[in-house]
């Protein structure tokens, strides 16, 4: 970096000289290496796709038969609402835990730390099975005052903790532990002067957090949270161990009967890919929404467009490593 700056300055000085006088045609650099690499990569890709498409053992007819099956759609619906609900629980609880971890109350801080310690420190699969079979641990759910005989509510565990509820609890609580870390980092990334300015205007701490700190923290929070959502979508596949009828459970039910494991997994993968791709849209919208007031959004350019044109302009944006390479 340090070595580049003087070189850049020299370039700048040279560049102004020819432009100062009459106008001339600028010949952009041709990137022959890029074209070669792209061609080689594309050839390999076409070959791979061709070989997969021609592979009889993949049974594309079975894939085609099941990809729009009712069973698959039902599973999809479960997977989707489970993802959405678990993320909602995780994020809501995660914000609460993050605020508790940053609070000045030592009891709240310790409780929040313990929560994160447990739910981040044990395997998700174990947590799912635990909630799925919690009925074996506690036959009844009682709500009352501890160490007395006063109860307000007495329910049979298995009627309340259906596989769907157990799945939601397991995924949501686990997510809360991770989300709280992300939210905490986001909150701490906001300059302390912001809260001070808000306080000096007479805003109370809760209002300051909601109106001033969190919206700014969002910019830092959203990209990793997008990752979490994508992860969550795929982690819902784990709840098939307690038969929660998500996409993966239903796929497993099918291949348990017809033994077409690989084609059925291809069906599942196709749908997970489609969902993950669709999730990119709200994320970029949210990033723009909470990016307000910061540098203007980068111009949208397709990958091909970037390959062919504007390469010279982009060198500075691809980072110092790239520009050192091109200079030799």
């Amino acid at each position: 970096m340090a070595a580049l700056t003087p070189a850049g300055a020299v370039c700048g000085a040279r560049a102004t000289a020819p432009h100062a006088g009459e106008s001339r045609t600028v010949v952009p650099i041709r990137h022959w290496g890029r074209w070669l690499a792209a061609a080689a990569a594309l050839t390999s890709l076409v070959g791979l796709i061709g070989s997969l498409a021609g592979n009889k053992n993949l049974h594309w007819d079975i894939v085609g038969h099941y990809v729009f099956a009712d069973l698959v759609f039902n599973g999809l619906a479960t997977t989707l609402w489970l993802t959405a609900a678990a993320m909602a629980v995780g994020l809501g609880l995660g914000v609460l835990v993050a605020v508790m971890r940053l609070s000045s109350n030592p009891v709240l801080r310790t409780l929040a730390n313990a929560f994160v310690w447990i739910f981040r420190g044990t395997p998700l699969l174990v947590q799912i099975i635990f909630w799925g079979y919690a009925g074996a641990l506690y036959k009844h759910i009682l709500i009352g005052i501890p160490f007395t005989h006063i109860t307000f509510l007495d329910m049979d565990t298995n009627t309340v903790l259906t596989p769907a509820v157990a799945a939601l609890l397991a995924l949501g609580l686990n997510e809360a532990a991770y989300a709280s870390e992300i939210v905490r980092a986001g909150i701490q990334s906001v300059d302390a002067g912001q809260a001070e300015a808000a306080h000096s205007l007479g805003m109370r701490p809760a209002l300051t957090t909601r109106r001033i700190v969190l919206p700014q923290a969002m910019r830092v929070i959203i990209p990793p949270l997008g990752n979490e959502t994508i992860n969550m979508l795929k982690m819902t596949a784990l709840v098939s161990v307690i038969s929660a009828h998500d996409l993966m459970s239903n796929i497993q039910d099918v291949y348990a009967q017809n033994y077409q494991v690989i084609p059925m997994l291809v069906v599942a993968s196709i749908w997970y890919l489609i969902l993950v791709t669709a999730l990119g849209l709200p994320q970029s919208w949210l990033e723009r929404r909470y990016g307000r007031g910061t540098a203007p959004a980068t111009p949208a350019t397709g990958p091909l467009q970037r390959l062919v044109t504007g390469a010279a302009l982009r060198i500075s944006r691809t980072g110092p490593a790239a520009s050192t390479d091109s200079k030799g």
Binding site: G193, Q194, I212, Q216
Partner: peptide, 15 residues
């Protein structure tokens, strides 16, 4: 509320 404060580094809300 009754005391306004202006900071060295402005501290405007950037969003």
């Amino acid at each position: 509320r009754d005391i306004g404060m202006v900071f060295q580094r402005f501290n405007l809300f950037p969003h």
